[in-house]
Amino acid sequence: MHYVLIPGAACTSWHWHPVTDELRRRGHTVTPVDLPCDDPTAGLEQYVDTVVGAVPHGEEVVLAAHSLGGFTGVMACERLPVREFVLVAAMVPAPGERISELTQERLGFRPDEMAGAHFPMLGHSVALVEYLLS
């Protein structure tokens, strides 16, 4: 199976490295995507294009999205043959919701209030891989 891993805001594919290493060790194809976060003109369309462009045409994937990558992942699911969509501490937009509308009140917490909990792929990579493979 091919696993495509979408990082959250201000993250890179590096944040997925423990999961990437474990999935590859178990014989799977893994593509941790680097989104164009350094391009201030890039928006969700460019993020989704980057994810879709990382997948060979027509290949079925398991798509995993972290944090704000949930917004990108939802849109990527419309353009890719996704076997399963996994949200990892991800934000899921309400119908019609814009990223700019996300607030602490909507989320119920600030990510920095939960030390280490926002990056489960760094501290609990084997458990996350077990879940992805189940």
Rank of each mutant, 00 (worst) to 15 (best):
F85I: 01
A90Q: 01
L132S: 08
V30T: 09
L44K: 00
E84M: 04
Q104V: 15
D21R: 12
S13T: 12
G108W: 03
V30N: 01
G108C: 09
H15D: 13
R106W: 06
R83K: 11
E105G: 05
A9M: 14
A10N: 15
L132M: 12
A64P: 03
F85V: 00
D21W: 07
V52D: 08
H2T: 12
G116K: 09
A90W: 05
T12M: 02
G73K: 03
A90I: 00
L63T: 00
L87I: 04
H15A: 12
T72I: 10
V92A: 10
G96Q: 08
G8M: 01
V129R: 05
V51Q: 00
D38K: 13
V19N: 09
L102D: 01
P36L: 13
A115I: 11
E78H: 10
L132I: 00
P81G: 00
G58R: 00
Y3W: 12
L63H: 02
H57G: 07
A117G: 10
A10H: 09
G116W: 02
I6S: 10
Y131N: 13
V52N: 07
P111Q: 05
R110G: 09
P7A: 11
P32K: 05
F85K: 02
L107N: 07
E78A: 15
H17P: 00
V82M: 00
A42P: 09
L133E: 15
E113L: 03
D112L: 09
V88N: 07
R79M: 03
R25M: 04
E97W: 03
A54D: 02
V126C: 02
H15S: 13
W16Q: 07
L68S: 01
F85L: 13
P93S: 06
V33Q: 11
H57T: 14
W16G: 01
S134R: 12
V74D: 05
E97R: 10
I6H: 01
Y3K: 00
A127K: 09
R110V: 12
A115R: 11
P111W: 12
G58C: 01
V86G: 02
G108S: 11
V33S: 05
V126P: 00
H17I: 02
F71R: 00
R83Y: 02
Y3M: 11
E105P: 06
